[in-house]
Every structure is written in structure tokens, then in C-alpha cells.
Design a protein around this nucleic acid. Sequence first.
DNA 1: GTCGCGATTTGCT
DNA 2: GCAAATCGCGACA
Length: 199
Amino acid sequence: MVADDALCSVLNPPSALPSAFFERDTVQVAQELLGHLLILYDPGSSLYVPYRIVETEAYTDEDPACHAYGRRHGRAETLYKQAGLAYVYFIYGMYFCLNVVAKTEGRAGAVLFRAVEPLHADYRILKTHGPGRLTKALGITKALHNEVLLTSPDSPLFLAQGQKTDKMSIITTTRIGIRKAADYPWRFYIRDNPYVSVK
DNA sequence: GTCGCGATTTGCT
DNA sequence: GCAAATCGCGACA
């Protein structure tokens, strides 16, 4: 467990979420990731920088909008591999999008990170509302594609247990920026959080 | 405030 | 050739 406003050192690393957390239904994982933490390790200061996950979307192999839909090769191959891997792709000629593979055995699927909230004051100036801005602010590139997002302190980026607040309520909507399966209610965000990309 | 455009990868038609 | 899980900027109202 990490104090929400604290940076952690290598001597006291945040506890990563177990791989079993991601070996479940993709839509359920997308919902439950809200309130948990994305931790970025800064090698310069040897500190872990925490961000609260405030907005996610789910994509599965039965979903026409998913890169794995009807296909099992190319970049989408990662979506069939083990849960907890990073799936990073380049889009619109300019932006990266960060996902974590989350699905039951034999399936394919991932959760897209659309927005995070920097928990440490020094990082609150970053623009992290929106999948493109988020990856730009955190320096996430295709270099992280296929990296494991579970182990600390080996991974530069991983997911950790957050403090769930009693009053955190979750809004469910349709996903942003897609035409296929535009009616699927698979986008989730924390109500009233200022870092959510689109209210 | 709202609208339209350009950035220029990836993979499918 | 073109659409896509996007964003920032400049034009106009």
C-alpha cells in the first residue's frame, strides 16, 4: 500500500498488483483498475512516482473496435499473451496509447488507460487527461510494448494497489473516438475527478 | 466558444 | 487508399 501523496524510494517500493488481478474479465478489470495506481520509476532520483487511474476503457476479442478482433497476428498478438503485459501502439501518426493486457485464459483483451491523476505535487502540472497526453507526459513509447507491468522494482512502469475511498463512484459511458461498436458501455471514470478527459 | 485541419504509423481493403 | 482507441493550434463567431 502506498500513501497516495507520497513518493516511494527503492528501499520501500509500492506493492504491485498480482497477475491474478488481470486474469479476469476485461470489462471487470477496466472498472476495478479505477482508484489503483500507475507507478513510474524515475532512475534519476531512484523514486517511484504515483498516478491514480481515473479513466479506462475495455477492449476484447469479441469487440469489433478491438485490434485483436478477427485477427491473431501483428501487434495484436500481444493481446493474446499473458495478462499484465503492456500493449502500446502508435496512432494518428503522432500519439502512443497505453494498455494493459487483461483477460481470462485463452481470450484476448486489454484495458486502455485514458487518464491518470498525478498524486505528487511536483507532477500535478503534467497534462495526463487523455490517452495521447498521458503517454507524452509520462514518456511512454513503443519501447514499453510487451513489457511486464507487474514486477517491482524491475519494471520502469507497473500497477500497484491504491487506497480505495468510500465515496468513489464510477460513471459508465460509451467509448471515445471509435466508430465500430460505438454503443458498447465500456468506458469507466471516477465521478468528479478533474483529470478525466471527457465528462 | 466551436470548427476544421494537420501530424504521418499501422493494418486492412 | 483510407480510417483509426488523438491532440493542439489557428480561424472565425
